[in-house]
Amino acid sequence: MKLSLIFLALGLSLATVGSALAHHSFAAEFDGNKPIRIQGTLSKIEWTNPHSWFWVDVKDDAGNTATWGCEGASPSVLTRKGFQKGEAKLGDQLVVDGYAAKDGSHLMNSRRIYLNGKLIFEQTEGDGQ
């Protein structure tokens, strides 16, 4: 059985483990009292510093699309873990659970990711931050 989009799992999990390791405090940007779930299509990946970003196009009931950014770790951290390219495609369906930005923008700190219906990453409450 193939595992895909592991990079996404790892990138995001690294982002959520320990705010002291991030270039900013997650809790200075995201609200632990604003849990959300988004569902949509992976539309862009930014493999950049200070954080990688995974962008998900989410359609609302009226058919309007909003793009949500899910923050990941920096590439220098991710590559240290010996990533290997495999299979994951823009256009894959994601469900992402996490905490939304305090300022109402479409950014989130991810805690669970489902790829095409399958749970591929989970950072449970109380772990890391």
Binding site: L3, S4, L5, I6, F7, A9, L10, S13, L14, T16, V17, G18, L21, I45, L78, K81, G82, F83, Q84, K85, G86, E87, A88, K89, I120, F121, E122, Q123, T124, D127, G128
Partner: peptide, 20 residues
């Protein structure tokens, strides 16, 4: 074309702190 990264899912599931 394609992106993916393998194996580290083990880290993600088994040990959230391990990634640090």
């Amino acid at each position: 074309a394609t992106w993916a990264f393998a194996a580290l899912l083990l880290f993600a599931f088994n040990s959230p702190g391990a990634l640090a």
